[in-house]
């Protein structure tokens, strides 16, 4: 067996003739060529789909329950579709400004970065502000967190999403702050890219929520539930009959 130790590549630029193109020279290579932090962010976002998946499952499970029990206010009477559409539009456009911020810093444009990041943060704040306004309106119309299952599942789902947006806004403002201190260079574009991944993810979650929670009309879904096979045993009845027996 040969025992020669071979050093394929040692110092900078040694052994030419290979592909010299590499985007982030500051970030050392990894086994896969994927950046540590970017891989972490994608893993986190994949995990976050399960987080929102569980919340959406909860919402959809209880969709129509308030109508079944005859406990208002119902979503059909309380949702302000034009208002929420504007909110959805605002968040969608914040994704555009976010991606423009990334394009700016990839070209080394500090000023562009700050402007677009601030614009994104502003649009994000508008969205959160709109959500605050919406929640206050709903409370005025009699829908509290504990009023009915619609209130509980609606506030918790959209509230968790709003918390995600709020964290995103704080993150963006932090990036602006770092940039103002002169800390962001072209090589740091990955910092912006990762924040952007988070921000766009929050946007796609809203795309799903907007459709499933707001736009799909309520009567139809309630009908689907009611028309299904009645011979299946209701788990509620069973659970409560157990309690009944205990007492």
């Amino acid at each position: 067996m040969a025992t020669t130790a071979i050093d394929v590549r040692t110092a900078h630029g040694a052994g030419g003739g290979h592909v010299e193109e590499h985007g982030h020279s500051e970030h050392p290579p990894t086994s896969t060529g994927m950046d540590h932090r970017k891989l972490l962010m994608w893993a986190f976002l994949t995990s976050d789909t399960m987080f929102f998946g569980s919340l959406i499952a909860t919402y959809l499970t209880y969709r129509g329950r308030a109508e079944d029990l005859g406990e208002g206010p119902y979503p059909s009477e309380i949702f302000d579709i034009p208002f929420t559409s504007v909110s959805a539009f605002v968040l969608l456009m914040s994704s555009l400004t976010m991606v423009l911020a990334l394009a700016a810093i990839q070209k080394g444009n500090q000023r562009g970065l700050r402007i677009w990041l601030l614009a994104t943060a502003l649009l994000g704040s508008m969205f959160v502000g709109g959500q605050y306004f919406e929640f206050t309106e709903f409370v005025h119309e009699g829908l509290g967190l504990t009023t009915n299952m619609f209130g509980s599942s609606f506030y918790v789902l959209t509230g968790f999403h709003g918390a995600h947006v709020t964290i995103g806004v704080i993150w963006l403002l932090t990036l602006v702050f770092v940039s103002l201190r002169g800390g962001t260079t072209q090589g740091d574009s990955l910092d912006v890219e990762i924040a952007g991944l988070y921000w766009h993810f929050v946007d796609i979650v809203w795309i799903v929520i907007f459709t499933l929670v707001y736009l799909i009309p309520y009567e139809e879904v309630a009908d689907v539930g009611a028309s299904e096979a009645a011979h299946l045993i209701s788990t509620f009845g069973r659970e409560l009959s157990v309690i009944n027996g205990l007492w």
């Binding site: 067996m1 040969a2 025992t3 020669t4 130790a5 071979i6 050093d7 394929v8 590549r9 040692t10 982030h24 500051e26 970030h27 050392p28 290579p29 990894t30 086994s31 540590h36 932090r37």
Partner: peptide
Amino acid sequence: MASILYPQPQLQGGT
């Protein structure tokens, strides 16, 4: 057997 040497994987840049 040949033992082939590669560049050392560096610790993460942000650290």
